[in-house]
Protein backbone atom coordinates (compact mmCIF):
# COMPACT_ATOMS: atom_id res chain seq x y z
CA UNK A 1 0.00 0.00 0.00
CA UNK A 2 1.35 3.39 -0.96
CA UNK A 3 0.57 6.87 0.40
CA UNK A 4 1.39 9.85 -1.81
CA UNK A 5 2.62 12.96 0.00
CA UNK A 6 2.28 16.21 -1.95
CA UNK A 7 5.11 18.71 -1.97
CA UNK A 8 4.69 22.33 -3.05
CA UNK A 9 7.32 25.06 -2.89
CA UNK A 10 7.28 25.98 0.81
CA UNK A 11 5.93 22.65 2.08
CA UNK A 12 7.98 21.56 5.09
CA UNK A 13 6.21 18.61 6.75
CA UNK A 14 6.29 16.10 3.90
CA UNK A 15 9.18 14.15 5.37
CA UNK A 16 7.53 13.80 8.76
CA UNK A 17 4.34 12.66 7.03
CA UNK A 18 6.28 10.12 4.97
CA UNK A 19 8.11 8.97 8.09
CA UNK A 20 4.85 8.59 9.98
CA UNK A 21 3.15 6.38 7.40
CA UNK A 22 6.41 4.48 6.93
CA UNK A 23 6.08 3.26 10.50
CA UNK A 24 3.01 1.23 9.55
CA UNK A 25 3.43 -2.35 8.41
CA UNK A 26 3.07 -2.75 4.68
CA UNK A 27 2.77 0.96 3.97
CA UNK A 28 5.23 3.01 1.97
CA UNK A 29 5.28 6.69 1.12
CA UNK A 30 6.13 8.53 -2.06
CA UNK A 31 6.62 12.28 -2.42
CA UNK A 32 4.50 13.72 -5.24
CA UNK A 33 5.84 17.02 -6.63
CA UNK A 34 3.46 19.92 -7.27
CA UNK A 35 4.19 20.17 -11.01
CA UNK A 36 3.44 16.53 -11.84
CA UNK A 37 -0.13 15.42 -12.57
CA UNK A 38 0.81 11.75 -12.16
CA UNK A 39 -0.27 10.40 -8.76
CA UNK A 40 1.85 7.28 -9.44
CA UNK A 41 -0.81 4.81 -8.42
CA UNK A 42 -0.95 5.78 -4.75
CA UNK A 43 -3.78 4.43 -2.58
CA UNK A 44 -4.19 7.60 -0.50
CA UNK A 45 -3.02 11.20 -0.71
CA UNK A 46 -1.71 13.36 2.13
CA UNK A 47 -1.51 17.12 1.68
CA UNK A 48 1.06 18.01 4.35
CA UNK A 49 1.77 21.15 6.33
CA UNK A 50 4.06 24.03 5.63
CA UNK A 51 3.89 27.38 3.94
CA UNK A 52 3.07 26.56 0.33
CA UNK A 53 3.92 29.44 -2.00
CA UNK A 54 4.90 31.52 1.01
CA UNK A 55 1.26 31.80 2.12
CA UNK A 56 0.99 34.59 -0.47
CA UNK A 57 -2.49 36.09 -0.92
CA UNK A 58 -4.12 33.63 1.51
CA UNK A 59 -2.92 30.37 2.98
CA UNK A 60 -3.43 27.64 0.38
CA UNK A 61 -4.76 30.04 -2.27
CA UNK A 62 -1.97 29.47 -4.79
CA UNK A 63 -1.27 25.78 -4.15
CA UNK A 64 -4.78 24.81 -5.16
CA UNK A 65 -3.90 25.70 -8.77
CA UNK A 66 -0.82 23.46 -8.92
CA UNK A 67 -1.02 20.71 -11.59
CA UNK A 68 -0.96 17.94 -8.99
CA UNK A 69 -4.13 19.35 -7.43
CA UNK A 70 -6.06 18.68 -10.65
CA UNK A 71 -5.25 15.00 -10.19
CA UNK A 72 -6.02 15.11 -6.48
CA UNK A 73 -9.43 16.64 -7.25
CA UNK A 74 -10.17 13.78 -9.69
CA UNK A 75 -8.84 11.24 -7.17
CA UNK A 76 -11.12 12.65 -4.48
CA UNK A 77 -14.12 12.74 -6.81
CA UNK A 78 -13.56 9.03 -7.49
CA UNK A 79 -13.69 8.31 -3.74
CA UNK A 80 -9.94 8.32 -3.05
CA UNK A 81 -8.82 9.01 0.51
CA UNK A 82 -7.29 12.49 0.93
CA UNK A 83 -5.94 13.81 4.25
CA UNK A 84 -4.98 17.48 4.59
CA UNK A 85 -2.89 18.55 7.57
CA UNK A 86 -2.61 22.22 8.60
CA UNK A 87 -1.56 23.98 5.37
CA UNK A 88 -2.95 20.93 3.59
CA UNK A 89 -6.31 21.58 5.30
CA UNK A 90 -6.12 25.21 4.15
CA UNK A 91 -5.35 24.08 0.59
CA UNK A 92 -8.26 21.60 0.52
CA UNK A 93 -10.64 24.33 1.73
CA UNK A 94 -9.38 26.76 -0.91
CA UNK A 95 -9.75 24.02 -3.53
CA UNK A 96 -13.36 23.48 -2.54
CA UNK A 97 -12.69 19.85 -1.59
CA UNK A 98 -13.67 20.71 1.99
CA UNK A 99 -16.20 23.24 3.25
CA UNK A 100 -15.25 26.39 5.13
CA UNK A 101 -12.09 28.43 5.48
CA UNK A 102 -9.25 29.03 7.92
CA UNK A 103 -8.84 32.52 9.39
CA UNK A 104 -5.98 34.10 11.34
CA UNK A 105 -5.69 33.19 15.02
CA UNK A 106 -7.28 35.91 17.18
CA UNK A 107 -3.88 36.39 18.85
CA UNK A 108 -2.32 37.01 15.40
CA UNK A 109 0.50 34.85 16.70
CA UNK A 110 2.06 31.60 15.59
CA UNK A 111 0.89 28.94 18.06
CA UNK A 112 2.85 25.85 18.94
CA UNK A 113 1.50 23.61 21.65
CA UNK A 114 0.28 20.14 22.45
CA UNK A 115 -3.51 19.85 22.46
CA UNK A 116 -6.01 17.13 23.23
CA UNK A 117 -8.46 16.24 20.51
CA UNK A 118 -11.84 14.58 20.91
CA UNK A 119 -12.79 12.16 18.17
CA UNK A 120 -16.37 13.04 17.20
CA UNK A 121 -16.87 10.10 14.84
CA UNK A 122 -14.70 7.13 15.84
CA UNK A 123 -15.96 4.88 13.04
CA UNK A 124 -14.86 6.69 9.89
CA UNK A 125 -12.05 6.07 7.41
CA UNK A 126 -9.73 8.38 9.36
CA UNK A 127 -10.52 7.36 12.95
CA UNK A 128 -11.41 3.65 13.07
CA UNK A 129 -8.15 2.84 14.90
CA UNK A 130 -8.07 5.99 17.08
CA UNK A 131 -8.65 6.28 20.81
CA UNK A 132 -11.47 8.69 21.70
CA UNK A 133 -8.98 11.34 22.77
CA UNK A 134 -5.70 12.12 21.03
CA UNK A 135 -2.75 14.21 22.16
CA UNK A 136 -1.08 15.93 19.19
CA UNK A 137 0.64 19.25 18.54
CA UNK A 138 -0.75 22.27 16.71
CA UNK A 139 1.52 24.85 15.06
CA UNK A 140 -0.07 27.54 12.95
CA UNK A 141 -0.96 31.21 12.54
CA UNK A 142 -4.09 30.71 10.46
CA UNK A 143 -6.11 28.01 12.16
CA UNK A 144 -9.45 29.54 13.10
CA UNK A 145 -11.92 27.33 11.27
CA UNK A 146 -15.05 29.01 10.01
CA UNK A 147 -17.99 27.76 8.01
CA UNK A 148 -21.31 29.55 7.53
CA UNK A 149 -22.94 26.17 6.83
CA UNK A 150 -23.20 23.04 8.99
CA UNK A 151 -20.21 20.73 8.49
CA UNK A 152 -19.28 17.12 9.19
CA UNK A 153 -16.96 17.42 12.19
CA UNK A 154 -14.52 14.58 12.87
CA UNK A 155 -12.17 16.15 15.44
CA UNK A 156 -12.79 18.82 18.07
CA UNK A 157 -10.39 20.42 20.49
CA UNK A 158 -11.07 19.00 23.94
CA UNK A 159 -13.10 21.33 26.21
CA UNK A 160 -11.01 24.33 27.20
CA UNK A 161 -8.21 23.53 24.74
CA UNK A 162 -9.30 25.41 21.62
CA UNK A 163 -6.08 27.24 20.73
CA UNK A 164 -7.34 29.42 17.87
CA UNK A 165 -10.96 30.42 18.41
CA UNK A 166 -12.25 27.99 15.79
CA UNK A 167 -16.01 27.74 15.41
CA UNK A 168 -17.53 25.16 17.80
CA UNK A 169 -13.99 24.01 18.80
CA UNK A 170 -13.66 22.39 15.36
CA UNK A 171 -10.22 20.89 14.70
CA UNK A 172 -11.00 18.69 11.70
CA UNK A 173 -13.82 18.24 9.17
CA UNK A 174 -14.58 15.89 6.32
CA UNK A 175 -16.52 16.22 3.09
CA UNK A 176 -20.03 14.89 2.64
CA UNK A 177 -18.79 11.71 0.96
CA UNK A 178 -16.46 11.03 3.90
CA UNK A 179 -13.28 10.44 1.87
CA UNK A 180 -11.60 13.85 2.29
CA UNK A 181 -10.56 15.10 5.73
CA UNK A 182 -8.65 18.15 6.88
CA UNK A 183 -7.37 19.00 10.35
CA UNK A 184 -5.18 21.74 11.81
CA UNK A 185 -3.28 19.60 14.38
CA UNK A 186 -0.31 17.55 13.20
CA UNK A 187 -0.67 13.77 13.66
CA UNK A 188 2.58 13.24 11.74
CA UNK A 189 4.49 14.99 14.53
CA UNK A 190 3.02 12.71 17.21
CA UNK A 191 4.26 9.27 16.23
CA UNK A 192 6.83 8.71 18.99
CA UNK A 193 6.36 9.56 22.68
CA UNK A 194 10.01 10.61 22.91
CA UNK A 195 9.64 13.64 20.67
CA UNK A 196 5.98 13.96 19.74
CA UNK A 197 4.36 14.18 23.16
CA UNK A 198 2.55 10.94 22.28
CA UNK A 199 2.28 8.41 19.49
CA UNK A 200 -1.44 9.09 19.10
CA UNK A 201 -1.04 10.68 15.68
CA UNK A 202 -0.04 7.35 14.24
CA UNK A 203 -3.55 6.02 14.84
CA UNK A 204 -4.98 8.36 12.20
CA UNK A 205 -2.65 6.96 9.54
CA UNK A 206 -3.32 3.43 10.83
CA UNK A 207 -7.05 4.11 10.47
CA UNK A 208 -6.62 5.06 6.83
CA UNK A 209 -4.54 1.95 6.16
CA UNK A 210 -7.13 -0.26 7.89
CA UNK A 211 -9.91 1.38 5.90
CA UNK A 212 -8.07 0.81 2.62
CA UNK A 213 -7.40 -2.83 3.48
CA UNK A 214 -11.06 -3.37 4.39
CA UNK A 215 -12.17 -1.67 1.17
CA UNK A 216 -9.80 -3.83 -0.87
CA UNK A 217 -11.13 -7.05 0.64
CA UNK A 218 -14.81 -6.23 0.21
CA UNK A 219 -16.82 -4.94 -2.74
CA UNK A 220 -16.43 -1.20 -3.22
CA UNK A 221 -18.38 0.79 -0.67
CA UNK A 222 -18.47 4.52 -0.13
CA UNK A 223 -15.74 5.80 2.14
CA UNK A 224 -16.76 6.83 5.59
Amino acid sequence: MKFGILRFPGTCDERDAAGAVGRLDGVEAEILPHHDRDLRGVDAVIVPGGFSYGDYLRTGAIARFAPVMESVTEFAAAGGIVLGICNGFQILCEAGLLPGALLPNPSLRFLFRQVRLSVVDPECAFTNACPLTLSVPVKHTTGRYYSPDPVDVVFKYAPGENPNGSQDDIAGVRNAAGNVLGLMPHPEHAVDPLCGGSADGLTIFASIAAHLRASASTPATPAG
Partner: peptide
Protein backbone atom coordinates in the same frame (compact mmCIF):
# COMPACT_ATOMS: atom_id res chain seq x y z
CA UNK B 1 -11.70 32.45 -8.11
CA UNK B 2 -8.43 33.73 -6.69
CA UNK B 3 -8.02 37.30 -5.44
CA UNK B 4 -10.61 36.95 -2.69
CA UNK B 5 -12.25 34.09 -0.82
CA UNK B 6 -15.94 34.99 -1.09
CA UNK B 7 -16.74 32.82 1.93
CA UNK B 8 -14.85 35.12 4.28
Amino acid sequence: RLLANPLI
